[in-house]
Amino acid sequence: MTQTTETPMVELKGVKKRFGDLEVLKGIDLRVDRGRIISIIGPSGSGKSTLLRSVNNLEVIDEGQILLDGVQVNRPDLKGLAFEKHINHIRQNMGMVFQHFNLFPHLSTLENVTLAPRKLKGVSASIARELGMELLERVGLADKAQVYPSALSGGQKQRVAIARALAMQPKVMLFDEATSALDPELVEEVNRVMKGLAEEHMTMLIVTHEMAFARDVSDWAMFMDGGVVVEANTPEHLFSHPDQERTQHFLRKHLGTQG
């Protein structure tokens, strides 16, 4: 990975986390430069989701540091309201897309997208609506602005979720198995949106099972297993001729990922 002298957008240093007796992250180091797209693959239980979720502190790490654009995210020194203020502020610069969408069912599509900008950034209702509609256009769902999530297909919900995350103009987008819960024919529409983001040089961390997509879109790929990064390289290298036995084994198990 070519290093730049710029501050990396996301940096992880010696990150460790345990759930009870089980050590889920065993000391992870990661550096994501601005505009880079990193994909993280691995079997379930490898810690990849935990890793992603610790970037915006949905999982609190036990040891190590997580930095967003030079600012430390995890702050064990802060407690109570002080920490609340800090983490809320930092999270507004990150966007997360979940496997199960987590759209707000009691709000329309447009309201889902505009809620955060209006309430957290004080954007006026009319401007928020404009920006919201622009975003919905971008993900191809402008006509569904007044529709409620229950009436949308999985692929549509996920696209709205992406628009919702983008509405806060984040510095980095975190994708936690964004297409894993989708029917196969709906995966493509979401991939297309994500690809569009990649082309606009949004910094992205993508945890995924979609090997082909990961290879297509990312600049750098990481294979995780048992809480450690087994191998990390360019997609061509990792997917076609991985160095590690474990990586090869994993890729073989997932059909149509080699060659």
Partner: peptide, 27 residues
Amino acid sequence: VDSGQNEASRSLGFGRLTTLQYIILPQ
């Protein structure tokens, strides 16, 4: 209320109280 709602809201930057107010209580 599904915990995913809380996660989505917090990941956007809503605090505990605002999450409760706009997302959890209505549901």
